[in-house]
Design a protein around this nucleic acid. Structure first.
Length: 359
DNA sequence: TAGGCCATCTGGTCCT
DNA sequence: AGGACCAGATGGCCTA
């Protein structure tokens, strides 16, 4: 995306100038948008990465009010990744963490970096190593899919597998150095023997939630609760290595303290978890793509998913008006100037909190 | 330390 | 029957 002159603010640009920017940018934009999940295409090949690095520095910067400094920051390529956490800086070497059948039971032994619990989604530009798409090993889905979905599946690997996965970042393949006795993912460990029924749990949680502010409750419980990681030790190191080597995790079932899943076997629960992770990863990839496609103060601006959606809506409305269409909810046909004002306002609003933090 | 954000697990529901 | 989708719960990380 072409970068508007930093000294020229969004509101100072005429519609024609903006249109020119957009038209000039269209090739890149088209390229980026050609694939729904650009995160996957972005990660294919080093050349693409380099290009993306450059173009990303020009995330639709539309000359925001009071963004001179930010605009200057855009003069150099900046990875759009916004890792809020220091410890979640992209891992340079993740290792060959080939997941089997889409499951996230990657090999813990392949983890060479610091162990983190979570995956952080990064832009492809920062992806030194990506997960191997399981599609290579796994058979095509037997389930019939809609034509569009089928096309997506055939044309590109699942974007969720194109992310850098922090070594040990997921509970399924981390080593448990702090608690060697824990050999199983947190949520998969067996609960205490006299486990209350789901209904009891639901009632209890409802009551307690009602009495306590949400976050306070969560954190209080989190501190008081005995870590699930300490409850069960059902998988040995040998078993974990089997997981990493691609063995069917179902064979690693704990011999005792079998967890009861509702209408599901443990194997299916694990598989469902893996699918769910993949699905959420795909969504996150789409968010990241969208984040790159909307204007921001700077490429380093932090935007939450909600903020991305808000800015995108505002941005789309502006573009629609410039194209002579009206995508406004109330069909009020706002002027382009008003739309631009709204975009600017939205970006400022959504970025305000983050900017405060940065200051 | 509280709150925001987000990843993950889980069970329910809907769809193919 | 099994997968996709969804929402609630949980807990980790980060910042003010």
């Amino acid at each position: 995306m072409a970068v508007a002159q930093p000294e020229k603010l969004f509101m100072q640009l005429s519609a024609a100038e903006l249109a020119a920017i957009i038209m000039k940018d269209s090739p890149n934009s088209n390229d980026r948008d050609a694939g729904f999940c650009s995160a996957s295409s972005e990660s294919e090949g080093g050349d693409d990465l380099a290009v993306e690095h450059t173009t990303r520095s020009g995330s639709p910067n539309i000359g925001l009010k009071g963004t001179e400094d930010f605009g200057a920051a855009d003069s150099k390529p900046i990875a759009l990744i916004r890792n809020k956490r220091k410890s979640t800086e992209p891992s340079k070497v993740v290792g060959s963490m080939t997941s089997t059948s889409g499951q996230a039971n990657a090999c813990p032994s392949a983890a060479t970096g610091p162990l983190k619990k979570r995956i952080r989604y990064t832009s492809s530009a920062d992806s030194a190593v990506v997960l191997t798409p399981p599609a290579i090993d796994s058979p095509p889905p037997t389930r019939s899919v809609a034509p569009t979905l089928r096309m997506e599946h055939e044309m590109m690997p699942n974007p969720a597998h194109m992310f850098v996965r922090h070594p040990g970042v997921t509970t399924l393949h981390r080593t448990f150095a702090a608690h060697p006795e824990q050999q199983e993912p947190l949520a998969l460990v067996t609960k205490k023997p006299q486990q209350p029924t789901e209904e009891d749990n639901a009632k209890t949680l409802k009551n307690r939630t009602a009495q306590t502010p949400k976050n306070t409750f969560h954190k209080k419980v989190a501190k008081e609760a005995i870590p699930a990681s300490l409850i069960d030790a059902s998988l040995s190191d040998e078993d974990m290595s089997k997981v990493g080597s691609g063995s069917d995790i179902s064979s690693l079932r704990p011999h005792s303290h079998q967890r009861n899943y509702k209408n599901m076997t443990r194997e299916r629960r694990i598989e469902a978890n893996a699918r769910e992770r993949t699905r959420v990863h795909t969504i996150s990839a789409a968010y990241e793509t969208l984040r790159h496609a909307v204007p921001a103060y700077a490429s380093t601006q932090k935007l939450s998913k909600l903020s991305v959606l808000r800015v995108a809506c505002s941005y789309i409305l502006t573009l629609s008006r410039m194209a002579g269409e009206d995508y406004s909810a109330d069909q009020s046909e706002p002027s382009i100037a008003d739309c631009i004002e709204a975009v600017t306002s939205t970006i400022q609003t959504e970025g305000k909190v983050k900017r405060k933090k940065d200051e």
